[in-house]
Design a binder for these strands. Structure first.
Lengths: 251, 251
DNA sequence: TTTGCATTCTTTGTACACAAAAGCATAATC
DNA sequence: GATTATGCTTTTGTGTACAAAGAATGCAAA
C-alpha cells in the first residue's frame, strides 16, 4: 500500500475534459480514460480510499470525480455501498445506441456545415493516431481515440449541449463494447472515420450522414451477449502512473 | 441570519429528481425547482455558506447539489469564485433550442409508440394542473409544470439517456425563458400540451411530431433580447421554507 | 477627483475526523 | 449439517477546520 503517484500528472489527451486544471479534473480524466481504454471492467468496485491512495489525494477529490462519472452513467453510485463501473444491460445498451444514432446524425449534419479546416485537420490527425495505435497492437489506445474522434466531431458541430450529451454516450458505448463485443473487429473503424471526414470536407451532408449511419450499424453488429474481462485490480490498472518502490520501501 | 428550515422537507413534486432521498437530493431539488419557477434569476450568486444556513446542512451537501446543477449547465461553477445561476447567451440559447427540437422529435415518436395508458393519464393530469396554476395566477408553478410535462413525456418515451438529456435541456430552457421571454404568453402552452397527448394516444406519430414542432416554434417565437428580473435574495426566494422567528429570536 | 497599490476580508478548495450503515464472518441453535 | 442471529470490520456519509485564492476597500499619490 505504499505506492502512489506523486506529481499527479495529467493523462495523455483527455485532460481537456474538465473546466480547469484542478486535481479532481485530473482524477476524473484518468478514470474516464481507463474506462475508455477498457482497462476498467464493468462491475469493478471503485473504492474511494484505494483511489485516493493511488492518486495521492483525499477522498473528497475522488468522490467528486466519481460523482461526475456517475452523472454520465459511466459509474454507478449505490447509496452506502460505494461506486462501481456501470454494467449496462442489453436494454440500456439498446437505448444508448438509439440516442447515439440520433445525436450522430445531428452532429454530422452540423459538422458538414460548420467544421473549419483546422478542425478537419485535427480530426484527420486523430484518425491517423487511431490507425497507428491499432497497427502497433495498442487496442486500448485505439478504442480511446475512436471515442475521442466522435467527441471531437461533436465539438466541430459547435453545439455545446450536444457535446456534453455525446461525451456521456461515447463513454457508455465504450463500456457496452467492453461488455458485449464479440470479436476485435473494432479496428475497422478508422477507415470509416476517414471516409466520413472526406464527405464532411466536401460539405456533402447527405453522404456524410449516410456514412455515419452505416458506421453505427457496424458498431451495432459487432455486439452480442458475450462478456469479456478487463483487469479488476485498481493498482494494476493505474500501474503506469505509480512509482514503484525499488528495494527498501519508504524508511 | 437566524432563520433556517429545520426538518428539511421535500419540495412539491420534483423530489423524484434524485437517486435516493438523501439530503443533497432534497437541496438539489429545491434549487432546481426555484430555477424552474424562475424565483432564481440568471446571474444570482449561490453562496455555499448562505445556502447551507438556509437549508440547515453543511457546505458539503450544498456543494454536491451545486456540482450536479453545474453538470446540467443550470449553474455556472467558476473556479475559486463560487457558483452563480447560469446566464445563457443568445448563442447558447440557440444551441439549446436546436437540441431540444431534436430530442423532442425523438421523444414524441417514441412516446407515440410506447406510452402506456397510465402514463397518458398522468400526463393529462399534469396538463390540468398546469392550466389550473395559470388560471389562478400562479405563473411560477405553471412554468414548472410545463417543464415537468416535457420531462414526463421523455420518461414515457422509455429511453434513459434521453430523459437525462431532456432534464438538462428543460432546465436551461426555463432559464432562457426567464432571461429572454417578452410577454407572459407562456400560458398558451397547456392547450398545445393537451392536443399533443391526444395525438399520442391516437398513436398518430406524424401528427404528434408536427404538433410538437409547432409547440417548439411557439416557445421560440416568444423570445427576444429583453431581460426581466426575478428575485436576487436567497432568503426571499426560499422564504416559504424558512421558519420565521416570531418575537424573540432564539435566546 | 481619479487611479493604482496594498492590506484585509470574504469565500472557496482540500483534507481529515467522526459517525453510521452495510457486509462478512463466526458461532450457536434447530 | 444447515440456517439464522449477532458482533465485528470495512467503507461510505457528513461535518468541520484550516489553507489559499479572489474581491473589496481604504489610502496615498498624481
Amino acid at each position: 500500500m505504499n505506492e502512489q503517484l506523486q506529481p499527479l500528472k495529467k493523462p495523455a489527451r483527455t485532460a481537456k475534459a474538465g473546466r480547469s486544471g484542478t486535481q479532481d479534473d485530473i482524477v476524473y480524466a484518468h478514470i474516464f480514460e481507463a474506462i475508455l481504454e477498457q482497462r476498467l471492467a464493468p462491475g469493478t468496485k471503485l473504492s474511494e480510499e484505494a483511489l485516493g491512495e493511488i492518486f495521492g489525494v483525499s477522498r473528497t477529490i475522488i468522490r467528486r470525480a466519481l460523482s461526475r462519472l456517475a452523472h454520465e452513467s459511466v459509474v454507478l453510485l449505490r447509496p452506502n455501498r460505494g461506486a462501481v463501473v456501470a454494467s449496462p444491460t442489453v436494454e440500456e445498451a439498446r437505448q444508448v445506441f438509439f440516442s447515439r444514432r440520433m445525436v450522430e446524425r445531428a452532429i454530422t449534419e452540423l459538422a458538414a456545415q460548420h467544421a473549419t479546416d483546422e478542425q478537419l485537420n485535427e480530426l484527420r490527425q486523430m484518425v491517423r493516431d487511431e490507425r497507428d495505435s491499432f497497427s502497433r497492437g495498442d487496442r486500448g489506445a485505439g478504442i480511446r481515440l475512436s471515442g475521442e474522434f466522435h467527441l471531437k466531431l461533436a465539438e466541430a458541430a459547435g453545439n455545446a449541449p450536444l457535446v456534453s450529451f455525446q461525451r456521456s454516450l461515447v463513454s457508455q458505448t465504450s463500456l457496452i463494447i467492453a461488455q458485449y463485443e464479440s470479436g476485435n473487429r473494432s479496428h475497422c473503424s478508422y477507415d470509416e472515420h476517414m471516409q466520413l471526414i472526406d464527405a464532411i470536407e466536401a460539405r456533402d451532408a447527405e453522404q456524410a450522414v449516410s456514412l455515419m449511419m452505416h458506421h453505427m450499424d457496424h458498431i451495432d453488429s459487432k455486439l452480442n451477449l458475450d462478456e469479456d474481462s478487463a483487469s479488476d485490480d485498481l493498482h494494476a490498472v493505474f500501474s503506469h502512473l505509480l512509482k514503484k518502490p525499488k528495494a527498501a520501501a519508504k524508511g
